[in-house]
Amino acid sequence: MKKHIVATVEEIPAGEKKFISVNGKSICVFNVNGEFYALRNSCPHQGAELCKGSVGGMTVYNGSSSEGFDVSFVKKGEVLRCPWHGWEFDIKTGKSIVDPKRCLVKSYDVTVEESDVEMINAQVETYLVTIKSNYVLVHV
């Protein structure tokens, strides 16, 4: 496993995402409320570019109420919905909501490290790095 510098922290504000390509794999880095997560950009269901889906929360059932059911909207900004069939995935784990054990998208460790580019031995030429900064690194 190798660390790959993919962005500066500032480049992906909370609620945003960035698509990258590592070793030919399409990967997407998400900033969820200040924390970074990376998922393979391919839905395990039928192969859609998963990370092009919408990001939101999810509606869950809490229990029965006198009127019917008690429902709440949770995990705001943490749920990725496939752009094709709408299957939901937890960005933090890559697991699908409907079948977390068997249907999950590959997730990658992400770290934020203060460093300069040369020391990490990264091959990202697009960043002109001469000063120390906080970088987002994906472990692939």
Partner: peptide
């Protein structure tokens, strides 16, 4: 259908 539309009926929380 449930796999994509589950959120419409969240109390249906299994297949």
């Amino acid at each position: 259908n449930w796999k994509g539309l589950r959120r419409e009926v969240p109390w249906v929380n299994r297949l």
